[in-house]
Amino acid sequence: MALTENDLRRLARLARIRIEDDETGPLLAQMGGILGLIDQLQAVDTRGVEPLSHALELQQRLRQDTVTEIDRRAQFQAVAPQVEAGLYLVPKVIE
């Protein structure tokens, strides 16, 4: 599967990564290489093989439903760029 420059720019936008014009060529080549590996994987007959969702053959540990965290807002907000009235302030996100 060949990746186009449009695909690359769309992916970059979705991931909020800025790509300079002179980077697109090398990036397309590198990502094409990765997709080539995936093509190889997909060529393998996996009938009867259960899909792997995690590299470890373990199952999720669960915790009891108890509140263990205390309010540490002051410490967390001490390192935030801007706060007011207990809120984290960010650039306005709606028109």
Partner: peptide, 19 residues
Amino acid sequence: HSKIFSGASTAFGAAPNAQ
């Protein structure tokens, strides 16, 4: 009582970011 992936409280109406 607590969140799905952390031990912070889910009680409604707390001061902003206290939970």
